[in-house]
Structure formats: structure tokens, C-alpha cells
């Protein structure tokens, strides 16, 4: 594991990503690297926000942690065990402990299965047997996420988007996990519903002592929920810092541009120069910083090597040449 991201606090680490890479080979077009050497650690009980634009690889990373996709290189450790070497009972145990909530709750629920059954599947896997006990647990879970037991009888198309996302949460909680990957859980919802789900997530975390990986492109939401934030750009972790520090003092030019351009942070009094738009990707012959074409203040060194994460201030890592 790289020195730069080794945990320095006393909290135990729950998830450790060591040098994760993922290459895709789509048919009929050239292969591309969705993730390049991503290393980070998630501490028990924290909410780690992962920020990036579409195509930055943030969802792929979430899937790799859950062993829903396999990396081309690198290792994932959960509770100190290599996730991709788990077999049989150990794998099942991992599945119970690590759960997921997706962006589009409509797609995340089997359209031909009653929502109660969907939750019950997880309850059964969580080790509760007997119809009575299972039903009680399903009702309890539904109430926990702010639904009524009567909702269990409905099919997904009979519920609204916000209600469906609550069902997805209930399902994710059904095997009593300790870690949740939240993959843009509110971006398909309306603003007024989004806040309800976010509040619910905060409450659940507090009550159940969960650890979250919160993936989002919405900086405002990440800012509010996260303890620490990682910024992904074209498959690379370019900045990693405690949330407050990152939003107060972003170090990477990409993070700065992202903050400046996000409407929530838009400040009419401050004129921001927009970085030029690339009209097509030029083919690269030698390694260079992926952000170089858009960077406001590029250095000569950026053209010859890919910058690595280094600790700029305690706990604040950035992958950019230090300005001399």
C-alpha cells in the first residue's frame, strides 16, 4: 500500500483499496482505463464522499468495492480480508455486511416482484427464518425508512420515486450491514424529495453506526454529508481531504474549477474564466497529467509525468505538481 494514503488516525479501517485499476474493452472501439491506480482507505463510521463527473469512474469504483465488477489490477480489503479471494460462507458474510443503493430506484427494483418480497429476500439471507419473524422484520424495516407496512404488498410501479428509494434503503438494510455504497442515491429525485432522503441517510447512519461511501456529482450534497472527500478525474484520484478543508481550500485546479462552476457555489460577484473546451481527444504518445489540456496554470513538468498523490497538509492529499 502506498505511503500517501496509509491511515494516520486511530480509527480502524473498514475498506482499503490498494492500487485499483480497471480497463474496459468495448467492442468496436479502443479500450480505455476507467480507473488508474486508485488507493484509499475508509474508516469505520465515517462517510466518505466520492466526487466526479460522469465517466470519471466513480460508479465503477463503488461496484469494485462490492465485488460486482472485478478490477484489472489491485486489491480490495474489507475488514482486513481480500474481498476477491473470499469464497463460500465468508463471501456470503461479506455480502451481508456490505450493501448498495443505486441512483435510479425504479431500475434497482425488480418490476415483477412486490417490494415486500424484495426486502424479505435480504431478511432471509440475514439469517431470520420463519414467515412470522420475517414479516415482522420487513414491517420494522419499512417503518424504519419512513414507509408503512402496507406498502409491502405493492409493486414498484405503484410507488413514487422517493418511496422507491426508501424501499431500496430498507432492502439494503435488511441483512443488517455495516457498510453502504450510496451510488448517487438522490440525483434522480426532485429537490424537495432529495432532502428527505438525505435526512433519512443521516439518521440511519447515526442509529445503526453505518459507514458510507457516498458517490455523487453534486458537490453541495457531498459537502453536507461527508467527513472526507475524494475527487476523481478521468479515473484518477486527484485530491483527497477532510470535507471542510477541501471546500475551503481546494488544491487541485480541477477541484477548483469544479467548485467554481457548480451552480450551488456560483458566486455572481466572482468572475470565473472558463477553461477551454476540448473538441476531441488527441492521442497521447507519452504520459502526461490528464488535466493538462484544461489546466489554468500548467507547468513544464506536467507534460512529462503523471503527478502522484502527496500530502500537502495533514490529511489533505493532492495529485498536482507543487507550485514552486
Amino acid at each position: 500500500m502506498k505511503e500517501a494514503t496509509r491511515p494516520k488516525e486511530h480509527l480502524p479501517q473498514l475498506v482499503v483499496l490498494d492500487d485499483i485499476s480497471k480497463r474496459f474493452y468495448p467492442q468496436g472501439s479502443p479500450s480505455f482505463e476507467a480507473l488508474s491506480s486508485v488507493s484509499l482507505a475508509l474508516y469505520q463510521g465515517e462517510t466518505f464522499g466520492l466526487v466526479g463527473e460522469s465517466g470519471s469512474g466513480k460508479s465503477t469504483l463503488g461496484r469494485i468495492i462490492l465485488r460486482l465488477a472485478s478490477p484489472t489490477g489491485g486489491k480490495v480489503y474489507f475488514d482486513g480480508r481480500d474481498v476477491f479471494s473470499l469464497r463460500g460462507r465468508a463471501l456470503l458474510d461479506f455480502r451481508k455486511k456490505a450493501q448498495v443503493v443505486f441512483q435510479d430506484p425504479k431500475a434497482a427494483l425488480n418490476p415483477r416482484m412486490r417490494v415486500g418480497t424484495a426486502v424479505e429476500e435480504g431478511v432471509a439471507l440475514g439469517g431470520i427464518a420463519g414467515t412470522r419473524a420475517k414479516n415482522e422484520r420487513v414491517d420494522e424495516l419499512l417503518e424504519h425508512v419512513g414507509l408503512q407496512p402496507s406498502h409491502a404488498k405493492l409493486f414498484p410501479h405503484e410507488l413514487s420515486g422517493g418511496q422507491l428509494q426508501r424501499v431500496c434503503l430498507a432492502r439494503a438494510l435488511s441483512p443488517s450491514p455495516k457498510f453502504l455504497v450510496l451510488d448517487e442515491p438522490t440525483s434522480s429525485l426532485d429537490v424537495s424529495i432529495q432532502a428527505q432522503i438525505l435526512k433519512l441517510l443521516l439518521r440511519l447512519k447515526r442509529e445503526l453506526g453505518l459507514t458510507y461511501l457516498f458517490i455523487s456529482h453534486d458537490l453541495a450534497v457531498v459537502r453536507v454529508l461527508s467527513d472526507r472527500v475524494g475527487v476523481l478525474y478521468k479515473g484518477r484520484l486527484v485530491e483527497l481531504a477532510p470535507a471542510k478543508a477541501l471546500f475551503k481550500e481546494p488544491l487541485h485546479p480541477y477541484t477548483r474549477a469544479l467548485l467554481a462552476l457548480s451552480p450551488e457555489f456560483w458566486d455572481a460577484s466572482r468572475t470565473t474564466t472558463l477553461p477551454a473546451e476540448s473538441e476531441g481527444d488527441a492521442e497521447k504518445t507519452h504520459p502526461e497529467c490528464a488535466y493538462l489540456p484544461l489546466c489554468e496554470e500548467p507547468l513544464e513538468a506536467c507534460k512529462s509525468r503523471i503527478p502522484e498523490l502527496h500530502e500537502a497538509s495533514p490529511g489533505h492529499f493532492v495529485a498536482c505538481q507543487p507550485k514552486a
Binding site: R63, K96, F102, N110, G122
Partner: peptide, 21 residues
Amino acid sequence: EDFVLAATAMGQGPFRILLWH
């Protein structure tokens, strides 16, 4: 589909996933 991924993440067996989902 997300719901199949969710079932996998849940630890459902492959036959149950194929048959039910």
C-alpha cells in the same frame, strides 16, 4: 440491471437470481 446487481450484492445464489430476477 441494477436490481440484479442489488440481488448479487445481497448474496443471492446464481440460480435464484436467474430464476427470480
